[in-house]
């Protein structure tokens, strides 16, 4: 066997392994899809079957009807509204703060950075009660504000992420920019931002998914049925101790994945087809 064909064999088996593994990774989605097409009484009794005996599309109809007179259309609207705002807020505030921590040597920066890291380490479970008290005082209960406004302060996770990416950008750029008479804001907007697009898109995608999936904050802060987000609505479709329309539940779970996947598929190329290389050359 020549060296070349050996290499080719290596590549081929690698591809096979990678694709084989991908099937393992996608199995859950297939299972979910199949369950969403089973009759409710079959979801558990026929759980091991990947192809339903009958395709029961009615699940999507009955699930989408929602409850208390509100269809899932409204819940999707609510979710989109909360999520888009949160993403925009998080991206703006996190990028700004990250730039300061990564590139500006201002007095107190280490202290504030340490504070930020500390806020990441405290389990949020013990903050629930005082946070609710706070929002209650602000008269924000049963509005979307508690879900949106804090995002405009950025998120520690994302700030840290962006800091790490910015620190990977050669510092010479700053210097040459300064020589060109480029001010801080201009440098931030015109040079730094385009260079860390992958990290910014990562931030946006993560924030989108996490906000979309979060049901605990909506559970606490949204009271009326017409305010419910998709994740909250789905959560209230199931109770292990009560009768559940599992078929409809799975159908709505599938639908709720659609925007998340769409966002990921649409934006992943900005993450992985980074522009830093071409940018640096230009």
């Amino acid at each position: 066997m020549s060296a070349i064909s050996k290499k080719r064999w290596g590549n081929l088996s690698l591809s096979a392994a990678v694709w084989g593994f991908a099937i393992v990774m996608i199995y859950p989605l297939l299972w979910l899809l199949s369950s969403s097409l089973k009759h409710t009484t079959e979801v558990y009794s026929q759980a091991h079957k990947l192809i339903p005996a009958h395709f029961y599309w009615e699940n999507y109809v009955s699930g989408f009807k929602g409850f208390a007179g509100h269809s899932f259309f409204l819940f999707f609207q609510n979710s989109l509204y909360v999520t888009i705002f949160s993403v925009v807020g998080t991206v703006i505030a996190s990028t700004m703060a990250a730039y300061a921590f990564a590139r500006i040597r201002f007095p107190g920066s280490t202290f504030w950075f340490a504070c930020m890291m500390l806020t990441l380490m405290l389990p949020s479970e013990v903050l629930i009660i005082p946070q609710y008290m706070l929002f209650n005082k602000l008269n924000w209960i049963n509005t979307f504000w508690p879900l949106i406004v804090p995002s405009f302060a950025g998120g520690a996770f994302f700030i840290f992420l962006l800091v790490q990416f910015m620190r990977g950008i050669p510092v010479e750029l700053d210097e040459s920019a300064r020589i060109d008479g480029c001010g801080r804001i201009l440098f931030f907007a015109k040079i730094m931002l385009p260079l860390i697009v992958p990290a910014i898109v990562t931030t946006a995608v993560f924030k989108f998914i996490w906000t979309w999936d979060d049901y605990f904050a909506p559970l606490l802060y949204l009271n009326s049925a017409e305010m419910a987000t998709v994740s909250l609505a789905i959560k209230s479709m199931a109770d292990p101790t009560m009768e559940t329309d599992w078929g409809a539940l799975f159908a709505m779970s599938v639908l709720s994945l659609v925007p998340v996947m769409a966002v990921f598929i649409a934006f992943q190329r900005y993450i992985v087809e980074g522009i830093s290389t071409t940018g640096l050359k230009g």
Partner: peptide
């Protein structure tokens, strides 16, 4: 405020 089972109970309560 009530402890809802599922859609069914939410509709009944409503």
């Amino acid at each position: 405020s009530y402890w809802a089972g599922t859609q069914l109970t939410i509709d009944a309560h409503d």
